[in-house]
Design a binder for these strands. Structure first.
Length: 533
RNA sequence: AGCGGGGUGGGGGAGCCAGGUCUACCCCGCCGGGCUCAUAACCCGGAGAUCGGUGGUUCAAAUCCACCCCCCGCUACCA
């Protein structure tokens, strides 16, 4: 099972959001061409206060807003060649029903309790305000626009009730304290099981959880007082909804159920209940607690025997230069702007190459220029083109026989096969950033090979040698198509088609393209992009 | 403040966990040369780094330890 964090669709996705979806799509594609059975799921996370507020701002009702956003996201994903088995949304009925039943089960199992709390409430907007939606004067430094959770100016952590002259972030009115009650998930009860589970995760993930576990897990509220969400199912919970996070993570399950219904084949039990199923979640570091503690805790508490996440591949952030992507400050690259500049598959390569696996990375147009124009176009595109046009123009469009093999051919083919092995191993080790470059490295070797063999001279002096060189180069392209497939599937298929390959799968030998195969239509794979920066 | 991540030639990355093969690797850029099959692309060679700082361990440290400096994130009802 391959999963990507569900984008919250209060705004259009940017490069950082796309990163996880593209990573998941990349990985699902990789596993498929390796011959594995895969199910891949993600979807739009569309409930909660921020969307409700955004809808108020735009004078729409939330459902219309997310309908619109969801279909835009679908379009965007198509443009980036992201084709998960099910990209759904939290408004789908299967999800809503699953979530409600799930929490009733948790209640039955004794992991849910009710408690009263006091929160700030805006009487004008008639909503309870999450911490961030309260602004006021910081009690420590006097900063006027401190938010209820933290003061941006001095960095101190706050409570909304500490703010001097608190105001509603939406309308500016002064909120009042109001008593309410909520249902809570009894996380502390699962401390032992969670602690044991976390031990099975990767070191980098554990780092983010250490504090939480050391300080002791605390109950987590399940419900909210806002209107836009899944109605809470508990007795007496009318008017309350389930907190977005506590329902969105269940989309990983409901998304598979929905897919099962769509396709009419047994998928849920096969994938979610079989302990041998492997699962991987592609998320950002900010999401770790929800995927490594809350989700597994929920799954355990259900006592249904669902598979816990096996691998959590979390990344750091992609920065725009030195800055974090920010909607309000217009910093960053958004999906539709990106698509206006270059094809989605170019961006896939750029994004995967920048994949912040070790530390934050930064996007810059210089880097973009290099990745697209030098790597994709000059190295890969041009290598493919020079080989294919050579076959087309001098060998009558027919892949030549390997008439006079040499030591150099053998060394070259072995080097390519070695890259291919590295490609596979790196992918299984989840070192996607490095793996995603291998088809470029292979093209570098190819260019080098052609220069050293000079088939354009051999063609005049030793045509049999020229045949072998072109035969060998053509094979290398087939292997390049394989390694390129998860990065740029459409381009890879285009290359495969030019080579007369029907379907892309893991090569088990060097010769993929039979001599005599017709190569008649040759088109450039990539084009240069002119950008000003 | 605590915890976590990072600081490697002009730019971007790898190497660090399992010290020596690192007189530090790769890509871009720069300088010089070659080739002419190809998308003015490609190939070769070169210049350029005391691996954040200080001290320590060791025959040997980018790699281990201590302290310090800078950047970033998290610290749970923001999704």
């Amino acid at each position: 099972m391959v999963f990507s964090a569900w984008p919250y669709i209060n705004s259009e996705p940017h490069l950082g959001t796309l990163l996880h979806l593209i990573s998941a799509d990349y990985y699902a594609r990789f596993l498929r061409i390796m011959g594995e059975e895969v199910v891949s799921v993600s979807g739009s996370d569309e409930h909660g206060t921020p969307i409700e507020v955004e809808a108020i701002k735009q004078g729409k009702n939330p459902k219309d807003l997310t309908d619109e956003m969801h279909s835009r996201v679908l379009e965007i994903l198509r443009s980036f060649s992201v084709e998960l088995d099910n990209y759904t949304r939290t408004e789908n009925e299967v999800h809503k029903e699953f979530v409600r039943n799930f929490y009733l089960q948790l209640e039955k199992n004794g992991y849910v309790f009710k408690q009263t709390t006091v929160q700030l409430y805006c009487e004008k907007d008639r909503i309870f305000l999450p911490d961030r939606f309260v602004i006021g004067k910081c009690p420590y430094c006097g900063y006027e626009r401190a938010r209820g959770d933290q003061c941006e100016n001095c960095g101190r952590l706050l409570e909304p009730t500490l703010l001097v002259e608190p105001r509603c972030a939406i309308c500016g009115e002064r909120p009042v304290k109001k008593e309410t009650f909520h249902w809570f998930f009894d996380l502390p009860k699962l401390t032992d099981e969670i602690t044991r589970y976390v031990e099975t995760l990767d070191e980098n993930v554990k780092g983010y959880l250490r504090n939480m576990l050391e300080e002791g897990l605390r109950p987590r509220s399940i419900t909210r007082d806002n209107k836009w969400g899944i109605p809470a199912p508990f007795a007496g919970s009318e008017g309350k909804t389930i907190y977005v996070w506590m329902e969105a993570v269940l989309g990983y399950l409901s998304g598979v159920i929905e897919l099962e219904k769509k396709k009419g084949e047994k998928l849920f039990e096969k994938f979610w209940m079989d302990p041998d199923t492997k699962s991987i979640y592609f998320i950002g570091k900010d999401n770790i607690p929800f995927h490594a503690i809350i989700l597994p805790a929920l799954l355990i508490a259900s006592r249904r025997g669902y598979n816990l996440p096996k691998k959590i591949s979390s990344t750091e952030f992609i920065l725009f230069g030195q800055m974090k992507f920010s909607k309000s400050q217009h910093v960053g690259v958004w999906a539709s702007d990106a698509l206006g500049i270059a094809d989605g598959e170019y961006w896939r390569y750029v994004i995967l190459s920048l994949r912040p696996e070790r530390g934050d990375t930064s996007f810059s147009w210089q880097e973009f220029d290099k990745l697209v124009n030098s790597d994709l176009n000059d190295k890969v595109g041009n290598y493919a083109h020079r080989v294919l046009t050579f076959v087309k123009d001098r060998f009558n469009g027919s892949v030549p026989e390997n008439l006079k093999p040499s030591e150099e051919d053998r060394a070259f083919s072995e080097a390519i096969m070695k890259l291919e092995e590295e490609f596979i191993r790196l992918n299984y080790d989840l070192r996607i950033k490095d793996a995603a470059r291998k088809f470029v490295e292979a093209s570098e070797l190819g260019n080098h090979y052609l220069s050293s063999q000079q088939p354009w001279n051999l063609y005049k002096s030793d045509k049999e040698r020229a045949s072998s060189v072109l035969y060998t180069s053509v094979q290398s392209l087939a292997h390049i198509a394989f390694m390129m497939y998860p990065v740029a599937p459409r381009r890879s298929q285009k290359l495969a088609t030019m080579l007369g390959i029907a379907s892309i799968e893991k090569p088990n030998r060097w010769e993929i393209v039979r001599p005599g195969t017709k190569i008649e239509r040759v088109e450039p794979l990539f084009q240069k992009i002119n950008i000003k920066y």
